[in-house]
């Protein structure tokens, strides 16, 4: 019917047109049914990040079926948090985890194996009943954005196969997405267009995976210095994002901001001898704006319970 109408209007259906029409027809043939939200309710799972205070800030942890972004300057603890998440995902659901493995895609080198080892030792000490957590973190290096885009189908087949052999993979971490786009692209119209179409391609692929396998996808992003006043305000923080006393904004611009579901900002400030780190929700469909302090210790990243401190 669709094709017929096109011919009637004297459109010469191009090759692309026909392919799309065929695809639409095929999708149509598949029975389309709405999902029952009452059943979905049990599926809106969260994965703990390994600290109850930070979990509270994130409304229970990192949500499955969506993309969460941690953005912050270097040394703010993004990678630490991601490593900790990859470990705590292995906890059983009674302890807030997903009892699942994780895929860790790193674009900055080298991969912090020693730090992971450290964290896993602390993890084993507190949860002696679980096997070696390092066995269930799959690490993969990616150098360019195109490589990441082409990796997504590979991940899909891997996820299909790993279901039976290991515990299912429920976490994908990409650390960091910004590093992929920092070098290869110039500030010209065509390059920017190619860049943003890559953004949407990668994000679309990741969202599809997240939906199909119930994954929690976590990406980290860097910040750039805020220059001038031409920038667009995104999210809750009215006075802009500040880190180390400088005003910053997340890298990759407005187009990428549309590609993530939630954005969490990690900042650090040298306040004399004391180093203060803060985690704040910039935007998220399920969370109000909130702000928590945290500290990085040998055993991992921990939130500072403000109320207890006040008492």
């Amino acid at each position: 019917m669709f094709m017929f109408q096109m011919k009637q209007r004297n459109d010469i259906p191009s090759h692309g047109n026909l392919v799309i029409t065929a695809r639409i027809e095929i999708t149509w043939l598949r029975e389309m049914k709405p999902e029952n939200l009452l059943l979905l309710r049990h599926r809106s799972e969260k994965c703990t990040v390994g600290c109850p205070v930070l979990d509270r800030c994130l409304g229970g942890g990192v949500p499955c079926h969506s993309i969460t972004e941690f953005v912050g300057e270097s040394g703010s603890g993004k990678t630490q948090l991601c490593l900790q998440l990859a470990l705590s995902a292995q906890l059983p659901s009674s302890r807030g985890g997903l009892s699942a493995s994780s895929i860790f895609i790193h674009t900055e080198f080298p991969f912090p194996f020693r730090r992971l080892r450290h964290l896993s030792r602390a993890f084993r000490a507190s949860h002696p009943d679980l096997p070696d957590p390092c066995d269930r973190v799959f690490v993969r290096a990616v150098h360019t954005a195109d490589e990441l885009l082409h990796l997504i189908p590979t991940i899909e087949t891997f996820l299909l196969h790993s279901r039976s052999r290991w515990r299912p993979v429920r976490i994908i971490v990409i650390d960091s997405i910004a590093a992929l786009f920092r070098s290869d692209f110039e500030n010209t119209g065509s390059d920017l267009r190619r860049r943003s179409s890559l953004f949407f391609g990668i994000s679309g692929g990741l969202r599809q995976l997240a939906k199909r396998f119930g994954l929690a996808v976590v990406v980290t992003n860097q910040v750039v210095d805020f220059i001038g006043d031409g920038d667009v305000r995104v999210g809750n923080l009215s006075n802009g994002l500040y880190s180390s006393g400088r005003r910053v904004c997340p890298a990759l611009g407005l187009a990428w901001a549309h590609c993530v579901n939630s954005r969490v900002f990690l900042s650090r400030d040298e306040d004399g001898p004391v180093r203060r780190r803060k985690m704040s929700v910039v935007f998220a469909p399920h969370l109000p704006h909130c702000c928590y302090e945290y500290a990085i210790k040998g055993e991992g990243v921990f939130g500072v319970d403000m109320q207890r401190e006040q008492d």
């Binding site: 639409i24 389309m32 709405p34 999902e35 979905l40 679309g204 599809q208 939906k211 199909r212």
Partner: peptide, 20 residues
Amino acid sequence: LENIFYFRVCSYTEQIALVN
């Protein structure tokens, strides 16, 4: 919740097919 018919679409072909 029951009265919201929720469709999650993962590609533009699905989106168009759904609208049809």
